[in-house]
Design a protein around this nucleic acid. Sequence first.
DNA 1: GCATACGGAGTACCA
DNA 2: ACTGGTACTCCGTATGCG
Length: 791
Amino acid sequence: MKVVFWLLDLNPKIEPDRTELWLWGIDSVGNRLLVIDRNFTAYFYAVLQQGADASKVVESIISKYGCSIVKADVVPRRFFGKPVTAIKVYCRDSTQTGKIAKQLRSIEGVQDCLEDDIRVVMRYLIDNNLSPCSWMEAQVTEEEVPKWVRVTHVYAVSEPPKMLDDVSVPALRTLGFSLICYSREGSPKPDRNPILIISTVSSGGKEKQFIVDEAKNDEPVIEKFIRYIRDFDPDVITSYGANMVNWPYLRGRAAKFGMALDLDRAHTEPHTSVYGHVSITGLVNLDLMDFMDVFPEVKVQTLWNLASYLGTADKNKGFIDDVLFADYWDDPQKRGELKRFGLESARKAHETASLLLDFAMQLSSLVSLPLDHVMTAATGFRVEWFLIKRTQEIGELIPKRLEQPYIPYAGGLVLSPKPGLHENIAVLDFKSMYPSIMIAYNLSPDTYIAPDEPEPTSGVYEAPEVHHKFRKEPPGFYTEALTYLINVRNSIRKRMNSLNHKTIDYRVLDARQKAVKIITNATYGYAGWTGARWYIKPVAEAASAWGRLTIQTAMQMAHDMEIGVVYGDTDSLFINYDQRKAQQLQDNIRLKLKLEVELGDVYQRIFFTEAKKRYAGLRQDGSLDIVGLEVIRGDWAEVAKKVQEQVLEIVLKEQSPKKAVDYVHTIIRELRKRKIPFTDFIIWKTLTKPPEDYAIKAPHVEAAKMLKEKGWRLTGGDKVGYVVLAGKGRLYNRVKPYVFANPNEVDVDYYVTNQVLPAAARILIFFDVTEAELLEETGETQEIRSLMDYL
DNA sequence: GCATACGGAGTACCA
DNA sequence: ACTGGTACTCCGTATGCG
């Protein structure tokens, strides 16, 4: 019989005599099912030395290691584009490929072994051209469902499934949860601190909380939570901090009680897998924290900030800092608030996940990494798996990941802006400049011609400045991959145009085009990453060199047409806007440089400082576009950011520096009177390593050390929120984590001199306002103000 | 002994 | 745990001056 199913998750099942592939899916009527492929044979390649006798090598491999090898076939392959002869070595035991490959490397005639580091799951997906989060069909025979497998049907296949061309997504059962633990010794630890509340929200809108008793015995809480999940049987289970905190904590607590955290579909427990991700067999564990790199605008990474950015929540109403959990629990007046907070967190997790799930599924389907891995994997790995999939058709072998020395190279060209105000400025952007350049000049690991190599007869492209050469024909696999991505995105966008924005199809397609876009744009970065399997520095170096030439040529063309250029960065030019001339410049660039240029923002007025990468523009619709300045930085106090934003708005819209100065005076006065909310004083900075590893004393490091002393866990990547307190000595001697600080201790003067003043002066200095003027109020304004204050 | 200068560490942004 | 280009604050020491 035939089944059609949507692939949710897959895992290898290691048996003594074989490795099975277990594919967990959902069929078209909503049955959860398991499809088992028992015909998988692991393999790797032994690449032969030039001129080695292939059959001789096969013979010696078989004679020496025959008992662990099923068969060995001689096959033609490519490596960095160059033809090689390889022996495809099939292994009896999929867990032994690495070991056998290592032994084979010392056999005479074998140059190296490759692809022994490709994991079973990815091998299966790549070889059979299957993608997770996609529909597929297979010829199957139904089997009895083992007692410990929680699905409706189990099938066996004799052939791997085949992909279907259907972009739809089945209705998934989703569950979001949050954890609240009790600790008076800093970060809770599972061996000593109980869970107080587990809150869950599931698709269908059901909300349920599991709350500990007065004795804080959380054993039944965990028990009931496990049972609840098993009954609901979610396809996707989501929480914020799932991988690093929630699952390890739940496992730790369960272990303490001698309980198995048995809530998956195969009677096993959540276990840590690649990239530190927690895998739950048969379903998908999604950590919302892994989505934070999609939204760099959210500076302080928390579930509540993410939710409010995505618009599912009204700011931080009802938020409780985890430092205070124990206090809230112990206070009968406040315990209810804590319970509400827990439930609200679960709601936010569930709502946020439902907004982001489409994107994650499309990314998973595009790059072939399973849904529960794809957001955890760094950009480089997502690009890499996408590329690996594309190289299989052309027989390119997958290089090993090597430790390579890091040598920087020249990047994009940045022009110095003309400081001050400009009227009527338009931005011309090169459309996906690096990908276009890589396609145009066939830049790829397999097209690179090293200096000592002969040039092919079809000719080469030679990069400016750096003189790296790339063969013109045939196209390299980067070129093919990028062309595919760009075409796919165009066709998706075309299809979207004919759809209502509110339809599910539109939403799914939009998620897909976003996924395609991030992979396209990351390919240049991947090319210059020393960790890349296909790292060849000249590829990235040539792309940026052509980029610099491109922007310089475009600038010269603008100049020849008497179009003023006020600024530019890498792939953009800021020009004095004249619609007719701009259009003509675009056409000229398209003809001469063979690259698309699009008209970006048009500003009524734009303000530049002397610094590059920092400006503020007033768009024609009246909105502000602030770039690089303190306003959008995450490491300045809110009070300073608000002041700068207002100053920019006044200066750009009303063109009244005087009014801006008055505004600054007002805020400084309020600051001195401590009328500014405490949270506006918090300065957030990221730790790049554990606090104790710092060679120097820095304010955020000292604040982090204070938190650590009280038992809070802090390492690289964590953000520390601190405030500056009144006192003497170095700055680092008078900071405190904001959770420990009292609003009255805040050093108002510091915030005036080192936060508000520089932020405001950065702008107003270009309107001949001095810092002294910003500090001192003079003349009548002061009289009026003080009279007003008095009244 | 103090104020100032300046390079380096550290962070965060833009493309 | 994708790239380079850039600005900026603060630390921590060197330097200059009296």
